[in-house]
């Protein structure tokens, strides 16, 4: 998608006539209008803060009800997740492992590919190549995730099954790979920004010392941009952890306690969707599991985002 900053600044002539005149009544009206508008605008801006409070409050209060019935220790360390069975077990680790597995596969694909794409775009590519690649990445970033899910299930899984015997119809591997494609634009464009911010003096100094271009890029430029690059990786992982549709469609919805990428797994997000789509009675323990799982998901992504922000700030401060 194109950026929304116009290349030229356009200025219109103010069309409306502002009421002038300094009668006391007039001034009072203007002052009241000013105060009302200011209050309204402030409320608009404050809705964001309210949203955060609401999210935190709902997740915690509903989870509290859940933890009255199930001990947090059992929740966090149990390896069997069968909340809808008649003899339920509430160990969240299979969901966590499913999330970790798919996100890790996504990062293993999107990390190296994103970094190399960024290096290529910022250090090597001709303007013509950039004009093709950048819009491609933007289009990839704009494709709805349900479309990626369809692609993983109906194209990638059958394709991989030809080469990998024993690959289940729903599996972590193809869901993770497609998720990697999904987070690739994030990693590539943020890493490119970081590489771009490395001052040219560093490149010239390295080249003047007799280093080759390859040595300059990998020995000087990439290390100098390392914190920005790591920040982009962290943000990409956070996206992958929170991604829902790809895994709900292609990874299967079975909470297996496994790190085997060929098997079906269920992530935290996919579990939330599965339960809310079913007819679990409102207020029951299994209904409240979605808020406990949601709280865990929220905390994980928040930690990743904050960490990513910190890493990026450090690199801003260290700019030469």
């Amino acid at each position: 998608m194109p950026s929304n900053t116009p290349s030229e600044v356009s200025v219109a002539y103010p069309r409306a006539v502002v009421r002038v005149g300094s009668t006391a009544r007039n001034r009072r009206r203007v002052r009241i209008e000013e105060a009302v508008v200011r209050l309204f605008l402030f409320v608009c801006a404050f809705i964001g803060v309210l949203t955060t409070f609401a999210i935190v409050f709902i997740l915690i209060s509903e989870s509290m009800h859940f933890f009255e019935k199930v001990s947090p220790m059992k929740f966090l360390t149990g390896t069997v997740w069968t909340p809808t069975f008649s003899n339920p077990s509430f160990g969240v680790l299979p969901l966590v492992l499913g999330t970790v597995l798919t996100s890790l596969i996504a990062l293993l694909l999107a990390g190296p590919v994103g970094l190399i794409t960024a290096v290529y775009l910022s250090e090597y590519a001709s303007p013509r190549v950039r004009r093709v690649v950048k819009p491609t990445l933007e289009v990839l970033a704009g494709i709805p995730t349900v479309v990626y899910g369809y692609f993983a299930l109906t194209f990638l899984t059958p394709l991989l099954q030809r080469f990998i015997p024993g690959l289940e119809g729903f599996n972590a591997l193809s869901a993770g790979l497609v998720m990697g494609i999904m987070i690739l634009p994030t990693i590539a464009s943020l890493s490119e920004d970081a590489l771009y911010a490395v001052p040219n003096s560093l490149r010239y100094a390295s080249l003047a010392l007799g280093a080759t271009r390859f040595q300059t890029v990998w020995g000087v430029v990439v290390p100098a941009a390392m914190s920005g690059v790591s920040a982009s990786f962290l943000l990409g992982v956070s996206r992958a952890v929170g991604e829902t549709m790809i895994v709900a469609i292609a990874a299967g919805q079975q909470p297996n306690f496994t790190l085997n990428p060929l098997r079906a797994v269920e992530t935290m997000t996919a579990y939330i969707v599965r339960i809310t789509m079913g007819d679990t009675p409102h207020g029951s323990v299994e209904y409240r599991t979605i808020f406990a799982v949601g709280l865990l998901l929220f905390l994980i992504t928040l930690a990743l985002n904050l960490f990513s922000e910190r890493v990026r700030q450090r690199y801003k401060g260290a700019r030469l």
Binding site: G48, E62, T301, L302
Partner: peptide, 28 residues
């Protein structure tokens, strides 16, 4: 600053969490 940081962080919250928020606040 608080409002701004807040907006940045909200942009990073997984969309399925917004679903839970909507379910509890608007639907219920």
């Amino acid at each position: 600053r608080l409002i701004e940081i807040n907006i940045t962080n909200l942009a990073g919250v997984p969309s399925v969490i917004y679903g839970l928020l909507g379910l509890q606040v608007f639907v219920r």
